[in-house]
Simulated scan of single mutants.
Amino acid sequence: MHWWLAYIALGLFSGFFAGMLGIGGGLVMVPTLALMFAAQAAFPSTEVLHLALGTSMAAILFTSLASLREHHRHGAVLWQIVGQITPGILAGTLLGTLFAARVPARPLALFFTVFVCLVAVQMILNLKPKPSRELPGAVGVFAVGTGIGAISSLVAIGGGSLTVPFLTWCNVRVQHAIGTSAAVGFPLALGGSLGYIFNGWEHTGLPPGSLGYVYLPALLWLVPSSMLIAPFGARLAHRLPVATLKRLFAGVLILLAGKMLWSLFG
């Protein structure tokens, strides 16, 4: 099978919905990549999920740059908050990738599936926190950033599903919360990518073309296809029934995560 075609298709699918719904592609990339890697003989069964997480995080590194630039152009990034939360984000990704590299695939898959289900429920019910407080001080922002970085690196997402609700809860306007979250996604993806590369660097038995836990042949096709299609998804967001598509996408996420669990436990 020509796996590069499958990687392009995945990049197009994840990039389209990321552009339309404003969510990171990692939620769909990780379970799909895990299934693709498991179907190839060169991939050790114990490392398919770690490679899927690392590759997805590296893909987000590139797509987050495009998102950051676009939001900055519209003046939607609160750079003061970005500067305050980034040290915690980097510390969290360090801890998260270190932990992920030492956890077996099955418990890691369970954690990922629970997180995906929570995100899917939030999408289906359109749950949003009510603005009810102000941003905490420097120590509080660092602690929140550490938590967001750790969880995001464990499930290989850009952090938007965590950062946006937190900032909205702290009375940051939704437009600024989304733009600031997009900017925070870059250091998060950078720290996560470096963490997965470092922690998988000396691991034996990984397939050829791996840079630590980042599988470069998949990354080569994922990045351009997802970045190419994302703007089209963003434009169609104003023409299609986004609420319905969001619920359908949430169902797809649950099915993919369930299939990934089945392949690891079955």
Rank of each mutant, 00 (worst) to 15 (best):
I157W: 00
P136N: 11
I60S: 00
T113K: 11
A91H: 05
G147L: 15
G158I: 01
F166I: 09
G54P: 04
V121G: 04
A109P: 10
A52M: 03
A120Y: 06
I89S: 04
A59F: 00
Q122P: 03
A109F: 07
V116F: 13
E70G: 10
A105T: 14
A138H: 11
T63E: 04
P131G: 00
G83L: 14
A100C: 12
P87E: 00
L65E: 05
E134K: 13
I81M: 02
L95C: 14
L51G: 09
L162H: 14
S64V: 00
T63W: 05
S161K: 02
S132P: 00
G83M: 10
P87C: 00
T180I: 01
V103T: 15
V184L: 15
H74C: 10
T146K: 03
V82L: 11
V82N: 08
V114S: 06
P165F: 03
C117V: 13
G88S: 09
G159C: 10
I81V: 09
P107A: 12
A182P: 09
P165D: 02
L162V: 12
V114K: 05
R173F: 01
A177Y: 04
L118P: 01
T97K: 03
R173V: 02
R133V: 08
A156K: 10
L65F: 14
L127W: 11
S64Y: 00
E70R: 14
L51F: 07
P107D: 11
A177Q: 07
G96L: 07
A59M: 02
W79S: 14
P87T: 00
I124T: 15
P87K: 01
F99L: 15
G96C: 07
T63G: 12
N126V: 09
G145V: 12
Q80G: 15
A143P: 08
V82D: 08
L53C: 13
A183Y: 12
K130R: 14
T86F: 06
V172R: 02
S56H: 03
G75Q: 13
G83D: 08
L49Y: 07
V174Y: 04
A101P: 02
I60N: 00
A100Y: 10
V77P: 06
I89T: 12
S132G: 07
L98F: 12
A183H: 13
K128F: 10
T180K: 01
P129N: 01
A59R: 00
I85D: 05
L110M: 13
H50W: 05
A109K: 07
W169D: 12
L167V: 01
V77S: 06
L127I: 10
L110I: 15
V114F: 09
G75A: 12
L49F: 11
R102C: 04
L94E: 02
E134T: 15
H71M: 09
